[in-house]
């Protein structure tokens, strides 16, 4: 029983990062109707930013979030201006299709560049407090993972407030719902697209920092993180940020449960099976409306 609880707790802690990764992907998809399959590679870049800040200057990984986020925001702006922004005039279906293809090419480029620049080795950030744990009865919780979950939750709460309470956030939601009507409100739709894409990238950057501190990074982690994010988005729909976060935690728990009950390999399979099942049961309404 205690081993179960321990496993589920670990799953939930990892799941918070899935939620964070998924919200970035969902934000871009909901607003621009583009599926950036290089989202996982952006997470990888965020992870390396944190890794190098720590290795070169001993920057605390939770402080380096403040660098990785804005840095990936800038990367997002550049990617939008150089690549994805060229698709905005297309019809929805071809826009999604082409964005997948561009994301795919981008993923290859980022993956290969990361290997060339930093080798294919696995890296992690081991802060001074890395070994510390919190105990609750028999339950052991590593402090870095708890911190990652807390930061993920805080970032998403901040994003929620931004989208709900500010003019810029409302403009993003309005654009997601009906870009043409939004432009009739005086909202510069293309600038909103760019902001949303950059915000999605920044969220990937923050997620990457947290992955580097609580887990490990390598140039190859991109695809699996993109898949995790996709699974969570499919589970949660595009309805709400909180829903996505909860779905992420649930996926983490389900993975742990599957690994514990059936064997380690099922950790990776369970999410994919859930994903395929939901896809086939709801072929049209995959991503719910609104934001």
């Amino acid at each position: 029983m205690e081993v179960w609880l321990q496993n589920m707790t670990f799953g939930a802690l990892v799941g918070g990062l899935y939620g964070l990764a998924a919200v970035g992907l969902a934000l871009v998809f909901g607003v621009l109707r583009m599926l950036n399959v290089a989202h996982g590679e952006l997470i990888m870049l965020g992870g390396y930013a944190t890794f190098w800040l720590f290795t070169l200057w001993r920057t605390d990984p939770y402080v380096s979030l403040l660098v990785a986020g804005p840095a990936l925001f800038a990367v997002g702006v550049a990617l939008y201006e150089g690549l994805f922004g060229r698709l905005v005039h297309l019809h929805e279906e071809s826009k999604i299709q082409l964005s997948i293809l561009i994301g795919f090419g981008l993923a290859l480029v980022l993956h290969a560049s990361a290997i060339l620049a930093w080798t294919a080795d696995e890296r992690g950030v081991t802060a001074a407090y890395a070994g510390r744990v919190l105990r609750a009865g028999a339950l052991v919780v590593p402090i870095t993972r708890l911190g990652a979950l807390g930061v993920a939750f805080a970032v998403l709460a901040g994003l929620h407030l931004y989208l709900q309470r500010t003019d810029a956030g409302r403009a993003i939601r309005a654009t997601a719902e009906d870009w043409e009507a939004a432009s009739l409100m005086g909202i510069p739709v293309r600038r909103v697209y760019r902001t949303a894409f950059a915000l999605g990238s920044a969220l990937a950057g923050v997620a990457g920092s947290l992955v580097a501190v609580s887990d490990a990074i390598s140039p190859a982690i991109g695809l699996s993180w993109t898949l995790k994010a996709l699974i969570v988005v499919v589970l949660a729909g595009l309805g709400s940020i909180l829903g996505t976060f909860v779905a992420g935690v649930l996926l983490g728990v389900a993975e742990s449960a599957a690994a514990f009950a059936l064997g380690g390999v099922f950790r990776e399979v369970v999410g994919l099976v859930l994903f395929v099942t939901i896809l086939t049961l709801r072929p049209q309404g995959l991503f719910g409306r609104g934001l």
Binding site: L35, E93, Q97, I100, V269, V276, L279, T280, L286
Partner: peptide
């Protein structure tokens, strides 16, 4: 999966082949 349209077919088939690979 062929009941899925466009991008959903794409990511659905990717997921299925990943299951098989694992």
């Amino acid at each position: 999966s062929l009941r899925l349209r466009g991008p959903y077919f794409a990511i659905g088939t990717l997921a299925m082949s990943e299951i098989l690979r694992i």
